[in-house]
């Protein structure tokens, strides 16, 4: 089990990257009036067959050869179902995969979001050849980070350059904290 939902996000998006997705959309949205926390990860990777989709929620299914269990999707599913939420996965070969998990925001068994900045920063700087669209919403506040926009500004300057990497980290941290406000996520 992951101790932070942001770790589940990192793990699931790594699947998208491995599936060859050029763009992965990560949406985290909290609505206090509905007592709802929602995480959606949508990629345009290679997708899965109907049979594969059924098997990924089985811990004894994995595409890797170094070990026989694959716990990424089962962990994510469990995190939602333990917290009064739901889990949904939809995929189409050569179109992509969408994973959606919902949580009761105030459920005592809901894992904390944890360090969302670290997750997004890790993804963005470690997979420079990929694009990410990160949307973070809390009630009426919203923050969007689009790597295509960053790339447009930076040209061929790497996201890994010290100053750029630090900027992205601070940019994420400040905006996430400002959107979160006093809400516990």
């Amino acid at each position: 089990m992951m101790t932070e939902l942001s770790l589940n996000i990192l793990d699931i998006v790594e699947n998208s990257v491995k599936a060859g997705a050029a763009l992965t959309e990560i949406t985290v949205s909290a609505q206090t009036a509905k007592n709802l926390l929602e995480i959606i990860i949508k990629d345009n990777g290679c997708g899965m067959s109907e049979e594969q989709v059924k098997s990924v929620i089985d811990p004894f299914y994995t595409t890797r050869t170094t070990r026989k269990v694959g716990l990424g999707v089962p962990f994510f599913k469990e995190s939602a179902e333990l917290a009064g939420g739901s889990f949904f996965i939809e995929s189409k070969l050569s179109v992509g995969t969408t994973v959606r998990a919902t949580y009761e925001l105030d459920n005592i068994d809901r894992m904390p979001m944890g360090d969302l900045t670290a997750t997004i920063h890790t993804l963005v700087t470690m997979h420079e050849e990929k694009d990410f669209l990160f949307t973070y919403k809390v009630n009426e506040n919203e923050f969007v980070l689009d790597t295509r926009q960053l790339r447009e500004i930076l040209g061929d300057i790497s996201f890994k350059e010290y100053e750029v990497s630090n900027y992205i980290k601070d940019y994420l941290k400040e905006n996430i904290s400002s959107v979160t406000g006093e809400i516990i996520i």
Binding site: M1, M2, L7, L10, D11, E14, R64, R67, G70, L71, G72, F75, D115, A118, T119, H121, T122, T125, M126, K160, Y162, S165
Partner: peptide
């Protein structure tokens, strides 16, 4: 950084290496 690594705490390790190398 597979599920096993992430669950065991690889994210802060990766961040530490990237930051310290820079």
């Amino acid at each position: 950084m597979a599920t096993c690594g992430i669950a065991a705490g690889a994210r802060p390790v990766l961040t530490a290496f990237s930051d310290l190398v820079q």
